[in-house]
Design a protein around this nucleic acid. Structure first.
Lengths: 129, 129
DNA sequence: TGAGGTACTAACAAAAAAGTAAGTAATGAG
DNA sequence: CTCATTACTTACTTTTTTGTTAGTACCTCA
């Protein structure tokens, strides 16, 4: 839980207000957010699809990261009134605007990795941006 | 200090290996790194210049973030054999390749912020990318 | 000889993020 | 009436990141 008046929080707030880069990184910067965004930028997915396709994620983390993205208006959550429940996640319009940025981040990362560590030949998966 | 075998570390490693986006975010994702990178992408700077121009940063954090960027071959550290000491930091060539990415991250952030919160009219500073 | 300037380091504490384990709710199928 | 299924919660622990405070080394100038 956040302590609103900690130096930590205050510093973060200040940086986010004065720097678009810091602000963006706060939004896309959780441990599992890249994995989620890669997937949702390709297709709408159900909660269980996300859970199954992201190896190693716990439900707690998946829900937490989805909630944050939802609060930041990046993804939209649609609940169907059925049993068992069905919930779909997809990018919002605002979320779609991230595509070029995500692309350039992803490309730079792959470039840096193969420059620094040429052996690491990456296996391109369906979910890579 | 890192525990090499914690689930936390293992998850991070796995994600960084399979996803260029996660990998990039690890490199540029520290609290003060955006502030440092913005500045160094405009000019070479001394340690003390960085310290004075980044409001609120502690020396421990400044040094730590600089070291990480140096290890990732993003910045270059030049020590002059003088007293009092003089140390300059600047982007490496690899660091320069980040420019388009940093630009798009920064722009998206500013766009998102003004979309979500139209009142927040940002004060453009010299150091914004 | 002792103060001053620069670029750090080290030890520790607080806060935040991530992980673990166990439960909940709704309802249709058998 | 019990079970299975999906999409979560909750309480708690561990790990990681960030912040605080107090040093250090070096030489030079007064």
């Amino acid at each position: 839980m956040r302590k609103d008046t900690s130096t930590n929080t205050l510093n973060e707030k200040m940086l986010n207000e004065s720097c678009g880069m810091a602000y963006s990184l706060k939004i896309i910067g959780g441990r599992w957010k890249p994995a989620i965004l890669c997937r949702l930028s390709h297709q709408k997915m159900r909660y269980s699809d996300l859970k199954n396709s992201i190896e190693g994620i716990s439900e707690r983390m998946l829900v937490a990261q989805l909630r944050e993205l939802e609060l930041d208006l990046i993804i939209k959550r649609t609940v169907y009134a059925v049993v068992p429940p069905k919930v779909e996640y997809e990018l919002t319009e605002l979320g779609e605007t991230m595509r070029p940025m995500l692309q350039s981040i992803s490309e730079w990362g792959n470039m840096h990795r193969s420059t620094v560590n040429p052996e690491t030949d990456l296996i391109k998966s369906d979910f890579m941006v």
